[in-house]
Design a protein around this nucleic acid. Sequence first.
DNA 1: TTTTAAATGAATGCATACACAAATGCATAC
DNA 2: GTATGCATTTGTGTATGCATTCATTTAAAA
Lengths: 228, 228
Amino acid sequence: MNDSLAENEVSLSRVEKVYRTIRNNILSNQYPPGHQVLEPELARQLGVSRTPVREALIRLEAEKLIELIPRRGMRVLPLVPKDYLQISQAISALEEKALHLLLSLNPGRDVLQPMADAVREMDEAMQTNDLVAWAEADEKFHRLLASLCGNERLNLLLEMLRAQTYRARLILLKLRPNLEASNQSQKEIFQAVVNGDVEAVEGLYRSHRQRVLSEAMALLEKYSLPHI
Amino acid sequence: MNDSLAENEVSLSRVEKVYRTIRNNILSNQYPPGHQVLEPELARQLGVSRTPVREALIRLEAEKLIELIPRRGMRVLPLVPKDYLQISQAISALEEKALHLLLSLNPGRDVLQPMADAVREMDEAMQTNDLVAWAEADEKFHRLLASLCGNERLNLLLEMLRAQTYRARLILLKLRPNLEASNQSQKEIFQAVVNGDVEAVEGLYRSHRQRVLSEAMALLEKYSLPHI
DNA sequence: TTTTAAATGAATGCATACACAAATGCATAC
DNA sequence: GTATGCATTTGTGTATGCATTCATTTAAAA
């Protein structure tokens, strides 16, 4: 993940570079929730004029990563717990559909191999208590699910929604007592996918998501996190 | 629906006015699929400089209503049948979740009254063979479902996706042999909602959507519509 | 006549300037 | 000390201008 206007992106427009830089800064928590930066300051930092900054900010606002406040510049949208819940519910709906679509494709082992790898990586990370590695494998699993389901629009939506909740998910990951249940669930879900068992997939996924969401909401309350 | 920079919107920024005007023109088919307009031409037509035009176009591109092609300006994104299918699948996923959420709210008759009105209006439109009225009532039904489910993020997503398929849905509506089955389905779905019967709602909705989507795809093939 | 090269015009991406409005700072009055 | 009014500063929204690039047209060569 680049964190600046990298030299090897010379063919990218300034808007694109600014967009990516700011987006990265948000996802990496360099711009934490509620963080405000004025357009002229962003322009100065990034060495461009305000115009491409504005254009990039409009895109980021459309993706609901920021809001633009007159005279306050850009503000990184903090997720209050309700936001997190609502976005997560939308993710659940779309991922469930993605699972259905994936199954209807009757994928062979070769197609599912990357997901199998991700599941294995999650397992390995569990064994060594490597939270970061587990998060990466988990992220990979979900990205693959969205991209392999054969519906590109769904993929894009999920990508956007997962970006909105990325930071929060990382934080919650660290607060959770243990990941054993989630790890197990995803293995079971994947196994049911391999078996082509639609009803099992649906049941397992719903249980999994319900538990994960309940857990998350309880943690947010327990730690009185106003926003994430 | 305004179709120009209305005089009664004096407090709206130029970007907002341009955005709304162009969006309206797309949804009303005044800018049909594939239609291209250059930025300077849009600016001339709308009586503003290029800057707010560009900013509005960036938003519309983020919503996947248009694409921006260098030296070709803005192009209204046509939906090839695959696009239509994919977006509709995403809509199905989100609407199913919306129904679940709505039911979990245990809404009273007063809350559901606007939906009941829409269902009645659909019935009345059926009786008088008024396609336009039926479409409006149908649109209203879906908008209400999204807005009453208690998940604002879901609502926004559905609003965006429905805008993307709005024009196509209107076209398909005219091509369908009859709407009796859809009308009946929606009545039954709504009745199940009123009864708080989760499983019935889910079953009915899935059947309904599967039939509607199959029909739509068959029509697109029958009429060899390359894009809509 | 056809193909290739050069010229031209125009669209985009971006920088800069301007007008306006809101926020801030300072002075004054109570 | 606090509130109010005014002047100044500053940020946004927008218009305009400039440099670059690309598509089209024109001219030249084969």
